[in-house]
Amino acid sequence: MTPTRKLMLQLSGIAIVLLMWEIAGRIMGENLLAAPSIVAVTYVELLLDGEMLIELLNSLRQMILGFGAACLVGMPLGALMGRSRLIDALVHPWISMIVVTSVAALVPIFMMLFGTGFEFRVAIVFVATIGYVVLTAYHGARGIDPKILDVARSFGTGRIDTYRKVILPALFPYLITGARLGLVHAIRAMVVAEMFVIVGYGGLIFQTGLDLSTAPILGYLVTIMVVSIGANVALQRVGDRVAPWYAARMAR
């Protein structure tokens, strides 16, 4: 398939969905589903008003802290689990448990522990993210080709050098994948927590929903979508930059 044809198909797919949305919006009315033409107008107003972007930046700052902490703790832990069977067996069941635990169910407990402020949101994002970061790093560390470790050993590479020059580069694409996956869950957790206590960006979405005005909500959803996709692409770019030798192998 030629790139032009691919692009045409992608654009026509987006156009079809927008058209269906427009028709549905016209039929259902603005109280049930605002049509994209209305959302576009409202969106400009939201951008000019500035409240949306301020709330978004505030929320994202706290999310980034929780996400960063999860990466800092989760990546080494996952790598250790991948290389040591003992640590794996001890930690894995609990990591699996954290991954399946619903963020929404944790929110009331974390509210009692941390209140509803800064620590609360950082902690929720941390817990929601860390499982995915750990598991991806773990699969990466487990899958390191024993051949390359043997080669390193037969050249007399020391422990630290093996870690720095062999394991880390081999693990790198998995760390990036883990970070991308974790980021999706970090944003999800941020919205869940904020909608629950009605603060920040998620609170904005929830509050607007109570006013039965669908156009601004859709505007907020578009913004969070752009942020999520943008952050993902950015992480991918960073990955390609820092470890170009893996870009081809980890096509996705």
Binding site: L9, A104, R188, V191, M195, I205, L221, I224, I229
Partner: peptide, 23 residues
């Protein structure tokens, strides 16, 4: 090719954010 970008776009919105609509 037609629907992959759209699906990914909607997928990247946290599902809970649809709660106001569902209400």
């Amino acid at each position: 090719q037609m629907f992959d970008p759209v699906v990914n776009a909607i997928f990247s919105i946290p599902s809970v954010a649809f709660v106001p609509f569902l209400i």
